[in-house]
Design a protein around this nucleic acid. Sequence first.
DNA 1: ATTTTGACGACGT
DNA 2: GACGTCGCCAAAA
Length: 115
Amino acid sequence: MNQNSSSPNFFEQVYEVTRLIPYGRVTSYGAIARYLGSTQSSRMVGWALNSTKTLPSWVPAHRVVNRQGLLTGKIHFPGSNTMQELLESEGVVIEDNRVKDFEKIFWDPQVALSL
DNA sequence: ATTTTGACGACGT
DNA sequence: GACGTCGCCAAAA
């Protein structure tokens, strides 16, 4: 919004969008970053999600993967493959650390929230 | 206070 | 099309 709200809002936006990810769907860091208007801030999206564990509210960070559909962030979850189990729990099939039919279950905030 | 890295992605070569 | 570099901003060392 205003130029002063440089970053705090950015993080909140990430949390908000991530919570809006439907059950059994996934999205990418870049998609969220692009939705926020900062295509190149994809790294910050991941960093923001890292802060989600300190947030009072639960954020389905396991539904966010990189552009390749790889569960790159699973290493940040407790256990070895908590992220994968959570996704499989939602019906998402994981094939070799990668989301199967990634394009099919991909949820683009730019499109979904634009309706 | 400065430097380095980091859940990525786009662009250049 | 594979590989390298830059950019984004924040947090940890």
